[in-house]
Amino acid sequence: MAASRPRSLLRNLNAKIAAIPMILTALVVFTGGTIWTVAYSFTKSGLLPRWQFVGLDQYERLWDSRRWLVSIENLFIYGACMLVFSFVIGFVLAALMDQKIRFENTFRTIILYPFALSFIVTGLVWQWLLNPDLGIQSVVRGMGWESFTFDPLYNAQIAIYGVLIAGLWQGTGLIMVLMLAGLRGIDQDIWKAARVDGIPTWKTYVFIIIPMMRPIFITTLVLVASSIVKVYDLIVAQTGGGPGIATEMPAKYVYDYMFGGQNLGQGFAASTMMLLAVLIVVIPWAMLEFGGRKRG
């Protein structure tokens, strides 16, 4: 038995060697890096990381900062609207596409293409379209409606909705494609049965089809939610966080303090809060998903 230990280590040796990058990534970068950042968020790190414990000081400063509070509020507004609108619009579009229509490929290609573009490109395009002197407002005024006002990016109250328009333009196509895949996975007999029973189409969707698509809804939700938390490039390109601090986001706060403001501690604390936000979404989902799998 004494020999079995080294042998079991050597078993599958090639597979283990091949998996070294994965093991390093999982342990050193993902786990180690996360723990490191969380640990250093309790220190006084400024220009360089410094192991001088200060307890929750960084977090107190963070939650006292007006910019951070605005960022969090923006993330909630943007996130909630993005989820609601992209899911509703995405699902309706998918349902329309599922009506055995002609030119389905053309429509899908058009609605999904913004997803292939970067947030930088998306942000810049919508910066121009929403620019009152150049874009939609100026065109409508040019047609004779002189008092028409549509300048979300120049009005601090509603600037975040200007970002939302761009975000929806870029991301709804993805939801549509995923929903369409879900709809196609539904047994056609269900539709036949509903039709025989005389249930109206909309009722079939709301009470039969959507509950059946719950898994794909949840997966898409987790995916989209965790990408919303990371929103950074879109803000940088479209508004730069402005006007003032009206469209700041947590991810931008982190970047600015870590690499611009030379205040690492604040960046670490802010990113730890982001991690917390994501965990609140992901852990219940993972327990549901993996717990269910074990039972089944």
Partner: peptide
């Protein structure tokens, strides 16, 4: 191999962790 699933699970979890936490490390 033994432990492969553990690493894989961490890896998939890592996809959801905001990059911001790992930028500086």
């Amino acid at each position: 191999f033994r432990g492969a699933d553990v690493f894989f699970t961490i890896l998939i979890f890592g996809a959801f962790i905001p990059y911001q936490v790992m930028l500086y490390p």
